[in-house]
Computed example of a mutant assay.
Amino acid sequence: MSDPAFLSLEKLTLAYGDTVAVKDLDLSIRKGELVAFLGPSGCGKTTTMRSIAGLLKPQSGRISLDGADITRVAANRRSVGLVFQSYALFPHLSVFENVAFGLRLKGLSGAELESRVGTGLKSVGLTSFADRKPAELSGGQQQRVALARSMVMEPKVLLLDEPLSNLDARLRLEMRTELQRVQRETGVTMIFVTHDQGEALSLADRIVVMLNGAIEQIGTPEEIYNRPASAFVADFVGFENIFAVENGKLRAGNGPIELPGPLPHDAAGLAWRPRMVTLGSGPFQGTVRGASFSGSTREYLLDTPLGALKAEVDAAVPAHAAGTTLAFDLPVDKAAKLERFN
Rank of each mutant, 00 (worst) to 15 (best):
G120R: 03
K122V: 05
L126I: 08
L126N: 06
S128Y: 07
S128D: 15
A130K: 15
D131C: 08
R132T: 03
P134C: 12
A135Y: 09
L137N: 03
L137D: 11
Q141T: 04
Q143F: 00
V145F: 03
M151F: 10
M151S: 08
M153P: 02
E154C: 03
E154H: 13
L158R: 02
D161K: 00
E162R: 00
N166L: 06
A169Y: 01
L171E: 00
R172A: 01
E174L: 01
Q180C: 05
Q183R: 12
Q183K: 12
E185F: 02
E185D: 15
T186N: 06
G187K: 07
T189H: 04
I191V: 14
I191H: 08
H195P: 13
D196V: 11
E199N: 13
L203D: 12
R206A: 04
I207M: 05
V208F: 05
V209A: 04
M210F: 07
M210S: 13
I215N: 13
E216C: 09
Q217I: 02
I218N: 06
I218L: 13
T220F: 10
P221L: 05
I224F: 04
I224S: 12
I224L: 03
I224Y: 06
I224W: 03
P228G: 11
A229E: 10
S230D: 01
F232P: 09
V233D: 06
A234W: 08
A234E: 07
D235Y: 08
V237R: 05
V237H: 02
